[in-house]
Design a binder for these strands. Structure first.
Lengths: 186, 186
DNA sequence: CTTGACAAACCGTCCAGACGGTATCTTTAT
DNA sequence: ATAAAGATACCGTCTGGACGGTTTGTCAAG
């Protein structure tokens, strides 16, 4: 109506922008901050425009999830590729990627988004698939109790970061990483 | 107005009922299921009645949190009391209590409630206090990297149970418990 | 007769999604 | 080559419902 119409059409870019904004909002204001109004407005798009790209809110969260998992996946794979030792490779990659997240650098939205992930049965199922696929894929090299345990501990640390429940200084973190990597080859 | 008035007045019981229902709802429908309307209705109380006991929603969540933490605390303490070895006592109790939750017996509401816990800054802070107090209290006996690691792994397993992301049979769980307890004394 | 324990109706806000439009891009027919 | 014919990418408003909280009223017990 007004005049934002004649903006050059860049569907892919707008889509990406919407996802980024949604992630940022969930980071800043928690999951509740992800409303269609807020996201669309912050992305400089009308609500109708948002709903054109994502037919409903769930689809938006879904897209967000895809985006983040893809990113996570890529980092894991990169870490695996640079590890010469086969045994426990995946677990060590998992450790590195998980521990690398927290300080402050982490992709905006990672944290709070996870809550939506847990809360939303649909996304929960998708995460389950990811875990299942990976644990089958790396059953040979990362199936030991030590590896499983190490990855669970990573999840615990990640949760602690999320909730800021434990105060771990750099030394403590480093110690944990070392112990965990030890478990991955044992 | 109608006739629920002449029910014998049992404020404490109603309060407890409200908490139970809230827990059950969060278990069945996720955090979003905890609405004043839903809770009050399911508890057979009017919304006004609910708000009489808990002045606002946060107070309700708060009460719920208190209830659950108290229960958790009691179980931990019982487990500690029955452990003759001082070293890693708290960690082993933590392990036992965490692993005992999942099968299906778990207190309705534990799982989903945690999400509210993470999402709600206020409750997040309270949990942080719990962790801090305990980790100070048991710094001597449970301060080792092994213990910390074991407890993080518990959190990870607990998260996995929450999300039903990993399929762990009884044997795998037993193996994990054993390894974790091993870490607690090492 | 006062106070605590409720009931019931109501309010303001927020939000997801529907809807009907318009502008730009792509394909097709000529 | 070009114009018509869609298809796609948006815009802006409206609505219906949910939800947190308030208010006013009612009873029963002490």
């Amino acid at each position: 109506m007004t005049e934002a119409h004649r903006r050059k059409k860049q569907p892919e870019q707008v889509r990406q922008q919407l996802l980024e904004v949604a992630a940022r909002l969930s980071h800043e204001q928690g999951v509740a901050g992800i409303t269609l109004d807020a996201v669309s407005q912050a992305a400089g798009v009308s609500k109708g425009g948002l709903l054109h790209h994502f037919p409903n809110k769930l689809a938006l969260l879904d897209g967000l999830f895809d985006d983040l998992v893809t990113r996570f996946d890529r980092e894991i794979e990169a870490a695996i590729a640079s590890d010469p030792v086969a045994k426990g490779r995946f677990t060590r990659a998992y450790i590195d990627v998980c521990f690398a997240l927290d300080p402050a650098t982490d992709v905006p939205g990672w944290r709070m988004l996870t809550i939506a992930l847990i809360a939303e049965p649909h996304l929960k199922a998708r995460w389950r698939d990811w875990v299942r696929r990976r644990s089958v894929e790396f059953a040979d090299t990362d199936g030991s109790t030590g590896c499983v345990l190490a990855r669970f501990a990573c999840d615990g640390v990640w949760l602690a970061d999320l909730m800021q429940s434990h105060e771990l200084d750099a030394a403590a973190r480093a110690g944990l990483v070392e112990s965990l990597k030890g478990l991955s080859v044992q």
